[in-house]
């Protein structure tokens, strides 16, 4: 690399790894830049394994005896009874398996919601509404009204952010209204306004939606007291783009 030229962006690296025709500029850069070429080689290795696997047969289901053997092996080392596989998954409502199992099931019932939230799937309205059918109602720790930021557009977009404890897990609910389609994608951040520290929380779509995102344990909410939504370009750079669209202070 010389003259301050930028490295190839992620899309160009992907395209090269996939063997798509490259521009002269890309070809030239790859010839000169061992970093980018190494990344292309690495990705191309993944593509090559996937292409080799195209016509491989699906996974083989093990015979029932395999689980029986594992269960027998477990029985010698754990006091808890083991249910048979397949028929009784976590959702099958087994009730007589003791404290450990009940605890685990209580955790696992939360999984579809958590998985959906992590995938950025939009559900319901309000943390309380989102988890409304749970036995334990969530404890709201902090909330923020989100408004336009100086460098962002200000055409009526707004939002509300809420942090609540759901089954002992801190979740951030982000509800937006009139959010224009992003140039790239919207990323939600927790901000430490004293230190400038930022934590990437996940993405939210444009428009009017609600998204539930897990808050990493150990985040000091006395320090991270603002929520920010930025428009992030697809440039492979995980840092903040500096284009904030909505922001608000968290009040407890």
């Amino acid at each position: 690399m010389s003259d301050g030229n930028r490295h190839l962006d992620a899309d160009a690296l992907d395209a090269a790894a996939l063997g798509q025709p490259a521009s002269a500029e890309t070809t030239l850069h790859l010839a000169e830049c061992s970093l980018c070429q190494a990344e292309v080689d690495d990705l191309a290795g993944v593509v090559s394994v996937a292409r080799a696997a195209e016509h491989d047969p699906p996974l083989t289901t093990p015979p029932d005896a395999v689980w029986e053997g594992i269960r027998a092996g477990l029985a010698t080392s754990t006091p808890s009874r083991q249910p048979p596989p397949g028929g009784s998954s976590a959702s099958a409502g087994v009730t007589d398996l003791g404290q450990v199992r009940r605890k685990a099931e209580s955790r696992l019932r939360f999984l579809p919601l958590l998985a959906a939230a992590v995938a950025g799937i939009v559900v319901g309205a309000g943390v309380v509404a989102l988890v409304g059918d749970r036995q334990q109602s969530p404890e709201v720790l902090a909330s923020a009204s989100l408004g336009p930021v100086a460098q962002g557009p200000a055409d009526g977009q707004s939002g509300v952010a809420e942090i609540a404890v759901v089954d002992g897990v801190q979740m951030l609910s982000v509800t937006t209204a009139n959010l224009a389609d992003p140039d790239g994608f919207y990323e939600v951040w927790l901000l430490n306004l004293n230190t400038g520290g930022m934590i990437a929380m996940g993405t939210v779509p444009g428009g009017a939606h609600q998204t539930l995102l897990p808050v990493p344990p150990g985040v000091d909410l006395a320090e991270y007291r603002a929520v920010d939504i930025s428009d992030e370009p697809f440039d492979g750079n995980p840092g903040h783009s500096s284009v904030s669209v909505l922001r608000g202070d968290l009040n407890t």
């Binding site: 955790r107 939360f110 999984l111 958590l114 998985a115 992590v118 995938a119 089954d167 002992g168 897990v169 990323e187 520290g197 930022m198 934590i199 990437a200 929380m201 996940g202 993405t203 995102l213 897990p214 808050v215 990493p216 344990p217 150990g218 995980p238 840092g239 903040h240």
Partner: peptide, 25 residues
């Protein structure tokens, strides 16, 4: 929920990079 299940790899890591650690898995 264990404290490690939701740990992010680094403050600026995009969430999807850490997906295997926060979902069902």
């Amino acid at each position: 929920m264990s404290a490690t299940a939701l740990r992010l790899a680094s403050p600026s890591t995009p969430l999807w990079d850490t997906l295997p650690m926060v979902g069902v898995e």
